[in-house]
C-alpha cells in the first residue's frame, strides 16, 4: 500500500471576477518510506499542493488517498485523528504556539491523543535533537534553528506514517538548514515514515528519493 495517492487533482481559486487554476490534473503516488521532494518556482502551487495532500485544504476536483483511505470528502473532525496520529507537519515559519514552552509544544499532539507519557516522550525527543536544556523556554527565546528542531520533534511525537514539510529550511541560514535537514532525514528513517517536502532548494532536492517539479500547476518528473 502506498503512503499517499493523488488522483487527477485540480485546484481553482475563484475570486468572483476571475478563475485561477493553480493545480491542473495532477496524479502521483508516494511510497511508504519514500522521501519525495516537490520543487518549483515561487507561485508554482507547491504549498497549495501540500495543503491538499495533507488534508488542510480541499481540491476543486480529484481524489486523495492517504494510507489507504480516501480523505477528499472527510470533514475537519473526521480528519482530526488522522492529522494527529498519521501525519506530521513541519513548516517554514515553524508555527509553534508562542504561549507554550518548547516541551509543551512537543507534547501537544500526544496530549491531544490522550497519551499519559506525553511529557516523557517529548523530553526524549528534545534530548535526541540536542534541546534537552531548552525545554522550558518559550519560542520567543529560541533561535530559528532551535524552533525548527522543536517543530520536527512535535511532528514526530505520535510516530506519524507520513511527514509533510513546507520549506523546512527556508527561514534558516545555510548551516542551521543543513543540520535541520540532516535531522529530518535521520528521524524519518528512524521512524520509517514517508517524507513529502516542498522546496525550491536544490540541496534538499539532491537528497530526495524522487523529485516532482511543478511548472504552471502541472507536474514534470525529474
Amino acid at each position: 500500500m502506498n503512503a499517499l495517492e493523488a488522483h487527477q487533482l485540480t485546484k481553482v481559486y475563484d475570486n468572483g471576477r476571475q478563475r485561477l487554476r493553480v493545480l491542473d490534473n495532477l496524479s502521483f503516488t508516494v511510497a511508504r518510506d519514500e522521501f519525495l521532494v516537490i520543487a518549483g518556482d515561487s507561485g508554482s502551487g507547491k504549498t497549495t499542493l501540500l495543503s491538499l495532500l495533507s488534508g488542510i485544504d480541499k481540491p476543486t476536483s480529484g481524489r486523495i488517498v492517504l494510507l489507504g483511505r480516501d480523505i477528499t470528502e472527510l470533514s475537519e473532525d473526521e480528519l482530526a485523528p488522522m492529522r494527529n496520529t498519521a501525519i506530521g507537519f513541519v513548516f517554514q515559519s515553524f508555527h509553534l504556539v508562542p504561549s507554550l514552552t518548547a516541551l509543551e509544544n512537543v507534547m501537544l499532539p500526544a496530549e491531544l491523543k490522550g497519551d499519559a507519557d506525553a511529557d516523557e516522550r517529548a523530553a526524549r525527543l528534545l534530548q535526541r535533537v540536542g534541546l534537552a536544556e531548552r525545554g522550558a523556554h518559550f519560542p520567543g527565546q529560541l533561535s530559528g534553528g532551535e524552533k525548527q528542531r522543536v517543530a520536527i520533534c512535535r511532528a514526530l511525537i505520535n510516530y506519524p506514517r507520513i511527514i509533510f514539510a513546507d520549506e523546512p529550511t527556508g527561514n534558516l541560514d545555510t548551516g542551521a538548514g543543513e543540520r535541520v535537514l540532516n535531522l529530518l532525514v535521520e528521524l524519518k528513517r528512524e521512524h520509517n515514515a514517508a517524507l513529502v517536502c516542498v522546496t525550491h532548494s536544490h540541496g534538499i532536492a539532491a537528497r530526495a528519493d524522487r523529485v516532482l517539479r511543478l511548472v504552471n500547476g502541472r507536474l514534470a518528473e525529474e
Binding site: 488542510i56 482530526a80 494527529n84 496520529t85 508562542p98 504561549s99 501537544l108 491531544l112
Partner: peptide, 19 residues
C-alpha cells in the same frame, strides 16, 4: 491573530473543532 493561530495549530495537530 494569536487566537486564530492557536486554533489553526490545534486543528493541524489533530484536535477536533470542539477542542
Amino acid at each position: 491573530f494569536a487566537r486564530i493561530r492557536e486554533t489553526v495549530y490545534y486543528k493541524i495537530l489533530g484536535a477536533r473543532s470542539g477542542f
